[in-house]
């Protein structure tokens, strides 16, 4: 249990998707104009990361990795399908996003209205694929750890995008040099927050 909690906190702060690895920057920059929309996208990302990371973990361990197919029979023990990783991961992500969208549409139309436009966007959000690829590099021992990592990464992204949206709403009233307005200043602010987040780096959990 302690392990799970520490993986969760690590994923939020020390390995923050946005500030430590700069993943998901496209949607981070494009959808952070107002706080409301960024909250919607943030929740959608938490949701999808929490689902796809554990599924891709199972896929990695029971289908794709070296010797992962051994459960089918001894003749498969030497099969190594890891070159298919990218295509399988992205297929899972795209399929899950589609599925999640359909389920939400049926179960909760209000949630669908808030998340609606963001869900298809998420399939091509680098943070989602990045979450699965980092999961592969980390060698988690069980699916619970993978789930906790996925959820933590999602929460990290949520905090980042809501934070920058709030700053951007405020900064509209400041006298930023004209050529720097909008995109330029957002980059520089993100860089400064990133430097701040580096102070978490030395912390061992």
């Amino acid at each position: 249990m302690e392990d799970l909690a520490s993986i969760f906190v690590r994923a939020i702060f020390i390995d923050n998707m946005v500030f430590a690895y700069f993943l998901g920057m496209c949607s981070y920059l494009a959808v952070s104009r107002t706080v409301n929309t960024s909250v919607g996208l943030g929740f959608a990302v938490i949701f999808v990361l929490g689902i796809t990371v554990p599924i891709n973990y199972l896929l990695e361990n029971f289908v794709l990795g070296r010797g992962a197919l051994a459960w089918l029979g001894p003749q498969f023990a030497a099969v190594d399908l890891s070159f298919l990783t990218f295509i399988m991961f992205i297929a899972i992500i795209a399929a899950m996003v589609q599925l999640v969208e359909m389920v939400i549409e049926k179960v909760s139309p209000t949630l669908h209205n808030t998340l609606g436009i963001f869900l298809p966007l998420i399939a091509v959000n680098c943070a989602i694929l990045g979450g699965s690829l980092f999961m592969q590099e980390r060698n988690f021992v069980n699916i619970g750890e993978a789930f906790s990592f996925g959820l933590g990464s999602g929460v990290g992204f949520f905090l980042a995008i809501v934070g920058i949206a709030a700053i951007r709403e405020k900064i509209r009233y400041s006298a930023v040099p004209a050529p720097l307005r909008g995109l330029g200043i957002t980059f520089i602010i993100t860089g400064l927050i990133g430097i701040g987040f580096m102070s978490f780096m030395g912390i061992e959990l």
Partner: peptide, 19 residues
């Protein structure tokens, strides 16, 4: 060398470009 400096460098490139 630290990653955040990449963001600030891009920010400055955007600044010069738009100027």
């Amino acid at each position: 060398i630290l990653p955040p400096m990449a963001l600030i460098t891009v920010g400055i490139i955007i600044w010069v470009h738009r100027y």
